[in-house]
Measured scan of single mutants.
Amino acid sequence: PKCKGCFKAIVAGDQNVEYKGTVWHKDCFTCSNCKQVIGTGSFFPKGEDFYCVTCHETKF
């Protein structure tokens, strides 16, 4: 599969995040607002966007 963030291949051994059939490298899975890496931490999906806890609390 290819990462939705950088469009490069995800190979065995890469740390990745999967959500609803889409996959990202862990470092490519970032907050849509502040761009900080969410990685495998908590996040809030809103449509096609993903927000870290801090930005979600501030924005919504």
Results as ranks from 00 to 15, higher is better:
Glu18Trp: 10
Ile10Glu: 08
Asn33Arg: 01
Phe44Trp: 12
Glu57Ser: 09
Gly47Glu: 12
Tyr51Ile: 05
Lys35Gly: 09
Gly39Thr: 06
Tyr19Ser: 13
Val53Gly: 13
Phe7Asn: 05
Phe60Arg: 07
Gly13Thr: 14
Cys28Ser: 02
Phe7Glu: 14
His56Pro: 02
Phe7Cys: 13
Ala9Ser: 03
Cys34Gly: 00
Gly21Pro: 02
Glu18Lys: 04
Cys3Ile: 00
Ile38Val: 11
Lys35Met: 08
Ala9Gln: 07
Ser42Arg: 12
Cys55Pro: 00
Phe44Met: 12
Pro1Val: 15
Thr54Gln: 15
Ile38Tyr: 01
Cys31Lys: 00
Gly5Tyr: 09
Gln36Ile: 12
Asn16Lys: 14
Glu48Val: 06
Gly41Gln: 09
Lys26Cys: 14
Gly13Trp: 08
Val53Met: 09
Phe29Thr: 01
Thr58His: 03
Gly5Val: 05
Ser32Arg: 09
Lys46Arg: 13
Asp27Leu: 08
Lys4Phe: 15
Cys3Trp: 01
Asp49Ile: 15
Asp14Trp: 07
Glu57Ile: 00
Thr30Ile: 14
Cys55Lys: 01
Phe7Val: 11
Lys2Met: 15
Lys8Val: 07
Lys46Val: 12
His25Val: 00
Val37Phe: 04
Phe50Met: 03
Cys34Glu: 04
Ile10Gly: 04
Cys3Met: 04
Val37Met: 03
Ser32His: 08
Asp14Thr: 13
Lys59Trp: 10
Phe50Gly: 02
Ile10Arg: 10
Val17Gly: 03
Lys35Leu: 10
Cys31Leu: 00
His25Met: 01
Gly41Trp: 04
Val17Phe: 09
Cys28Asp: 02
Gln36Ala: 09
Cys3Phe: 02
Phe43Tyr: 06
Cys28Trp: 00
Ser32Glu: 04
Lys59Ile: 04
Lys8Trp: 06
Glu18Gln: 12
Phe43Leu: 12
Thr58Cys: 14
Ile10Cys: 02
Gly21Ala: 10
Cys3Ala: 04
Pro1Gly: 15
Trp24Asp: 02
Trp24Arg: 10
Asn16Thr: 13
Gln15Val: 03
Ala12Tyr: 04
Asn33Ser: 08
Asp14Asn: 05
Lys8Cys: 05
Ser42Leu: 07
Gly13Glu: 11
Glu57Asp: 06
Phe50Trp: 11
Thr58Phe: 01
Gly5Met: 05
Thr54Tyr: 03
Lys4Tyr: 15
Phe44Leu: 13
Asp49Phe: 14
Cys34Lys: 00
Trp24Ser: 01
Val17Ser: 07
Thr30Asn: 08
Thr58Asp: 12
Lys26His: 03
Ile10Leu: 14
Thr58Leu: 07
Thr58Ile: 11
Pro45Lys: 05
His25Asp: 03
Tyr51Lys: 09
Val17Leu: 06
Pro45Gln: 02
Asn16Asp: 10
Ser32Asn: 05
Gly13Pro: 09
Ile38Met: 13
Gly41Ala: 12
Lys2Ala: 15
Pro45Cys: 04
Val53Asn: 00
Cys52Val: 00
Thr30Ala: 12
Glu48Ile: 15
Lys26Tyr: 02
Lys8Gly: 09
Pro45Arg: 07
Val17Ala: 11
Gly47Asn: 06
Pro45Val: 06
Tyr19Arg: 12
Thr40Gln: 09
Thr40Ala: 05
Cys34Val: 00
Asn16Ser: 07
Phe60Ser: 12
Thr54Leu: 06
Gly21Val: 07
Thr22Cys: 13
Ala12Cys: 14
Ser42Lys: 12
Cys52Asp: 02
Lys35Cys: 11
Gly39Glu: 05
Phe44Thr: 13
Thr58Ala: 08
Ile38Asn: 09
Lys4Asn: 03
His25Ala: 01
Gln36Met: 04
Cys6Gln: 01
His56Met: 07
Asp49Cys: 10
Tyr51Ser: 06
Tyr51Met: 15
Phe43Pro: 09
Lys4Arg: 07
Cys52Tyr: 00
Pro1Cys: 15
Pro45Tyr: 02
Asp14Glu: 13
Ser42Met: 03
Pro45Gly: 02
Asp27Met: 13
Lys20Phe: 14
Gly5Cys: 13
Phe60Glu: 11
Tyr51Asn: 09
Val17Cys: 10
Thr58Glu: 07
Tyr19Gly: 12
Glu57His: 15
Ile10Tyr: 06
Lys26Met: 10
Thr40Val: 06
Asp14Ile: 12
Val11Pro: 12
Lys20Thr: 09
Thr54His: 13
Lys20Ser: 11
Cys52Pro: 05
Phe50Tyr: 15
Glu57Ala: 10
Lys46Gln: 02
Val11Asp: 09
Glu18Phe: 08
Pro1Phe: 15
Cys55Tyr: 00
Phe43Thr: 09
Trp24Gln: 04
Asp14Phe: 02
Phe44Pro: 05
Gln15Met: 06
Ile10Thr: 14
Thr22Glu: 10
Cys34Ser: 00
His56Ile: 01
Thr54Gly: 09
Pro45Phe: 05
Gly47Leu: 08
Tyr19Gln: 14
Gln36Gly: 14
Lys20Arg: 11
Val11Leu: 12
Val23Leu: 13
Cys55Val: 00
Pro45Asn: 02
Phe50Ile: 04
Asp49Gln: 13
Cys28Glu: 02
Gly5Asp: 14
Gly21Asp: 13
Phe43Glu: 08
Lys26Asn: 02
Gln36Phe: 08
Cys55Gly: 00
Glu57Phe: 03
Phe44Val: 08
Gly21Glu: 08
Asp14Pro: 12
Gly21Ser: 10
Glu18Gly: 11
Ala9Ile: 03
Glu18Val: 12
Glu57Pro: 12
Tyr19Thr: 12
His56Lys: 13
Ser32Met: 08
Gly41Cys: 04
Thr54Lys: 04
Val11Ser: 10
Ala9Pro: 15
Gly13Val: 13
Pro1Ala: 15
Phe7Asp: 00
Ala12Met: 14
Glu57Gln: 05
Gly47Pro: 05
Phe7Trp: 13
Lys8Glu: 04
Gln15Tyr: 07
Asp14Arg: 07
Phe29Asp: 01
Gly47Lys: 09
Ser42Gly: 12
Thr22Ser: 14
Asp14Val: 03
Ile38Arg: 03
Ala12Thr: 14
Val53Ile: 11
Val17Asn: 01
Cys55Ala: 00
Ser32Phe: 09
Tyr19Phe: 03
Pro1Arg: 14
Ser32Gly: 08
Phe29Glu: 01
Asn16Arg: 14
Ser42Ile: 11
Cys28Tyr: 00
Cys6Glu: 00
Glu48Phe: 03
Val53Pro: 08
Thr40Tyr: 03
Gln15Ser: 10
His25Leu: 00
Cys3Arg: 03
Tyr51Pro: 03
Gly47Ile: 14
Val17Thr: 10
Ile10Phe: 02
Lys46Gly: 06
Gln36Asn: 12
Ser32Val: 10
Asn16Gln: 12
Ala12Ile: 04
Gly5Ala: 13
Gln36Leu: 07
Ser32Trp: 12
Tyr51Glu: 04
Pro45Leu: 03
Lys8Ala: 04
Thr30Glu: 10
Asn16Pro: 10
Phe44Lys: 03
Phe7Met: 07
Lys2Ile: 15
Thr22Phe: 01
Gly5Asn: 14
Lys46Ile: 05
Gly41Glu: 07
Lys26Val: 14
Asp14Ser: 07
Tyr51Thr: 06
Cys28Leu: 01
Ser32Thr: 09
Phe50Cys: 10
Tyr51Arg: 06
Ile38Cys: 04
Gln15Trp: 01
Val23Gly: 11
Glu48Cys: 05
Gly39Gln: 09
Lys46Asn: 08
Asp14Gln: 14
Phe29Val: 12
Asp27Gln: 04
Val17Arg: 13
Phe43Cys: 09
Gly13Tyr: 09
Asn16His: 02
Gly47Cys: 01
Gln36Glu: 02
Gly21Met: 06
Phe29Ser: 03
Val53Thr: 11
Lys46Asp: 06
Thr30Trp: 15
Cys34Thr: 00
Glu48Trp: 06
Lys26Ile: 02
Val37His: 11
Cys34Trp: 00
Val23Trp: 12
Glu57Lys: 12
Val17Glu: 07
Asp27Ala: 05
Cys28Arg: 01
Lys46Met: 15
His25Pro: 02
Thr22Gly: 12
Phe7Arg: 11
Gly41Asp: 13
Thr30Pro: 14
Glu48Thr: 11
Pro1Met: 15
Ile38Pro: 03
Gly13Asn: 02
Ala12Asn: 02
Thr54Asp: 09
Tyr19His: 09
Lys35Ala: 12
Phe60Tyr: 12
Cys55Asn: 01
Tyr19Asp: 12
His56Ser: 04
Glu57Asn: 02
Asp14Leu: 12
Thr54Phe: 10
Thr40Ser: 07
Phe44Asn: 02
Cys28Gly: 02
Asp14Ala: 09
